[in-house]
Amino acid sequence: MSSPQPPSPLLKLLLDFGPLLLFFLVYGRSDLYTATAVLMVASAVSFGGLWRLERRMPVMPLVNVVLVSVFGGLTLWLADETFIKMKPTLIYALFALILAGGRLLGRQPLRVVFGPMMSLQEKGWTLLTWRWAAFFLFLAGVNEIAWRVLTTDQWVTLKTFGFIPIVMLFALTQAPLMTRYKLLEETDSPRS
């Protein structure tokens, strides 16, 4: 039996960010409660699509769909938008906790996720993990402040169009660290 082919980058992008984009579009035409219901359904469909395409349990989308379901469900059931606004805080704090906890236990959580895509020296994985843990903690704080001081319209715009570019920009700033600690391929000759 052959191993599954990875989904095309465009399809993966659609499955990863489609639910959030639908949330924003529906919110612009309706209200936060309708947008939340759409986000819940779209997240579940996206998770199912990723699971089917990759033929493995995608952990990060699973965490997201569980939290969207729980906090979206509480938002709809109690008619209180606070819960859906708190979800990003909890996701970012959970990521920070997993990364920092993994390092404190002597593990390299980022290597588990990204090891097949890149090879870094042990010190590189450690530095990268601590940086991402601190960054996710920062994002959790930003969201906590944002949902408390911004209007719902402003918060939805920040959630949709602010956090993703901030995460991508932070990832790009990590390129020098990853280059500095990249392991030489076995076929590469050491530089003299």
Rank of each mutant, 00 (worst) to 15 (best):
S2L: 11
S3N: 07
S3G: 11
S3C: 04
S3Y: 04
P4S: 13
Q5V: 15
Q5M: 14
P7N: 12
K12A: 15
L14Y: 03
L15F: 12
G18H: 01
G18I: 06
L20W: 09
L20V: 14
F23W: 00
L25D: 08
V26F: 06
R29C: 10
T36F: 01
A37M: 08
A37Q: 02
V38G: 10
V41Q: 02
A42T: 06
S43E: 09
V45W: 05
S46T: 03
L50D: 02
W51Q: 15
R52D: 14
M57K: 05
M57S: 05
V59F: 15
P61D: 12
P61I: 11
N64I: 14
V65Q: 05
V66G: 06
V66N: 01
L67F: 08
V68H: 04
V68P: 04
V70W: 00
V70I: 13
G72N: 07
G72W: 05
G73I: 07
T75S: 14
T75I: 03
L76S: 11
W77D: 12
L78I: 05
D80P: 12
T82E: 10
F83Q: 02
I84N: 08
K85P: 01
K87E: 14
L90R: 03
L99E: 01
A100C: 06
A100V: 08
L105G: 14
L110K: 03
R111S: 10
V113C: 09
F114D: 06
G115V: 04
M117T: 02
S119G: 15
S119W: 00
Q121Y: 00
Q121W: 00
E122Q: 06
K123Y: 01
G124L: 04
L127W: 03
L127H: 07
T129W: 01
W132F: 15
F135A: 09
F138H: 01
V142K: 06
V142Y: 09
V142S: 10
E144C: 11
W147A: 04
R148D: 11
L150K: 00
T151D: 13
T152K: 02
W155M: 14
W155Y: 15
V156S: 13
V156W: 05
L158Q: 09
T160P: 06
F161Y: 09
G162C: 07
I164K: 01
L169M: 12
A171G: 13
L172C: 09
M178R: 11
T179D: 13
R180T: 10
K182I: 09
E186G: 10
T187E: 11
D188N: 07
P190E: 09
P190L: 13
R191W: 10
S192A: 13
S192R: 03
